[in-house]
Amino acid sequence: MSFLPLDIDPQALKGMTDHAEAAFPNECCGFFYGSEDGQIRAVTVSTEVTNSKEGDQRRRFAISHKDYLNAERHAAREGLTLLGVYHSHPLHPAIPSEHDLAVALPYFSYIIVSVQPKGTAHVRSWQLNEQRHFAEEAIVALPEAWRVS
């Protein structure tokens, strides 16, 4: 199974990487919205959400039920599709962990920002396949510096 490539609006992408850098050394998280046309999954807006994880936020994140409820309501109100969740991996690669997999949902894109003290290192996106494994999604027009070579 192959997934639609992600086309992320530059401002939406900047919102995610700025958030990841501001939250460092903690993990940040948020939602993103947009639309699909059968050829591309277009991310037009990203919104920050409070990391509600109690305990070590350098290694974990959680989004409250209320924030999820508000995200679905926001999408319905704006005529957008809730396309997925982003979060950061401080000092670690932008590869999903066991904890990411444990509660991952179908359909959503999971964008991970790998962030170092000097700033964003890489941005990658993943989606669950039919076997409940993460498969990477292509991101078109991602700045070269944030690609994994």
Binding site: E27, C29, K53, R59, R60, F61, A62, I63, H65, Y68, L69, E72, V85, H87, H89, P90, H92, P96, S97, H99, D100, A102, V103, A104, L105, Y110
Partner: peptide
């Protein structure tokens, strides 16, 4: 009525 999935993860 809303169905709300858990959203969480980490390193």
């Amino acid at each position: 009525v809303s169905i709300i999935p858990a959203i969480a993860g980490g390193l």
